[in-house]
Amino acid sequence: MEAFFWVVAIPATVSAVGVVMMRDTVYSALLLVVHLLAVAVLFVLLNAQLIAAVQVVVYAGAIMVLFLFVIMMLGLGRGEGVKEKLPLQRPVALLFGGAMAILLGVVMSQTTIQPVAGALTPGDVLAMGGNTQVVGRLLFSDYLLAFEVTSILLLVAIIGAVVLAKRRL
């Protein structure tokens, strides 16, 4: 398991760096697919099979198609110009980004994590019918209100996208 973590974590990090560094937007989008798939594998390693499947279908499938569609439609293959409007933007960004990484890393590695009361082991979840069943049951009982609000949010997003992208209403 330990080795498998690194086999997935390193491509996830490298492809994320690639997304940011690539001059060609299409390459960025394709590297983002690699990144999302790698993170989906990490989800499987963490016993979140449903979320991993949703990640592949919704993110790597639907959202990335949307991205590539817009990139192709606008014809944005070429990179941006070299002209900098803010001269120190890059070094300052790297400085503060590095500071934030160190801060986050220290906090993340220092915290001790206690299991909650009534913690479920992967075996318990399997006995209750499997990850998908248990998460689905939670979604439609304890989190039903949030679930319904999400459906309204998606409706608003559809209407908003149509209104914004339409040339003339």
């Binding site: 979140a48 449903l50 979320i51 949703v54 990640q55 919704v58 993110y59 994590i113 206690q114 299991p115 909650v116 913690a119 479920l120 082991t121 979840v125 990850n131 248990v134 998460v135 939670l138 979604l139 304890d142 989190y143 949030a146 999400t150 949010l153 998606l154």
Partner: peptide, 15 residues
Amino acid sequence: KGSLAGQVFVFFVLA
């Protein structure tokens, strides 16, 4: 933590 609430939350983040 052995709690599935985090997975449900990720579901909403995806939406």
